[in-house]
Amino acid sequence: MAYGMLIDLSKCMGCRGCQVACKQWNDLPGEQTTLGSDFTNPQKRSAYTWTTIEWLTTEVDGRTVSTFTKTGCLHCLQPACESVCIAGAIHKQDNGAVTIDHDKCIGCRYCQLGCPFGVPKYEYDQVVPRMQKCNLCYSRIEAGLEPACAATCPNDAILFGERDELLALAKERIAAGNGRYVDHVYGEHEAGGTSVMYISHVPLDLTTLNTNVTTEAVPSFTWKAMRQLPALVGSAAVLSLGLLAYSNRRARLEAEQRGGGAQ
């Protein structure tokens, strides 16, 4: 069963309970933080902070609009990180979670380059570092529980369930909202579809969601080149051997012309 989450931004009140629950369940250490112009804290996700509520304050028609966006791994249906991982350490699990096997990871950090959302974070401060990111509380799902953030959300802004059902629910809410929601389920098509989806009551560019992201499945970007390798190698072999035959023939003819006959 492929689970996912639906995050209804209109219901988020920015309490950051999800942040705290995530830290607690995953036993992540606290970090020295600083305040910025908004109330996002910590300012960035890191190997020790897998989810944050990002505040974004914008002026729209003279009105100050403040939005909260729950960030973290979107658990793509076809994850770029999984496709580029040299060690096969990253897996899209059957339950929907994209997880990292620390025992396999060699630390090439290609997943950080590949992820269109900038999700995987590395323990750069460690001598033997690990790649870290939200794992959709894989172990909780296996035990029949919701992810910690969804379980703790006091206003049901984070809903956990089967992705298909959540997608239907999202569309239902948008339809029933009579314009209360933006008519867009973020994550339905983004990066080829993600398990974590969003609906929003404000235009998406007022949130911190990446609105520039491709709608194609990212692994296809490199696969289109990888799948041509057999043809490339075949052509190189044909070219080399063809040229070799030609060279040998020419050498033989030249030798005959010199009058020596075949060597």
């Binding site: 580029v84 040299i86 396999k104 060699i106």
Partner: peptide
């Protein structure tokens, strides 16, 4: 020295990896 855990440099060769990854192909 660039990868996070240097002594695992040979892992993709010894333990295999991910055929989909260009980096694995290069290794």
């Amino acid at each position: 020295f660039d990868i996070g855990i240097p002594w695992r440099i040979i892992n993709p060769i010894v333990f295999g990896g991910n055929l989909h990854s260009p980096l694995f192909e290069i290794a």
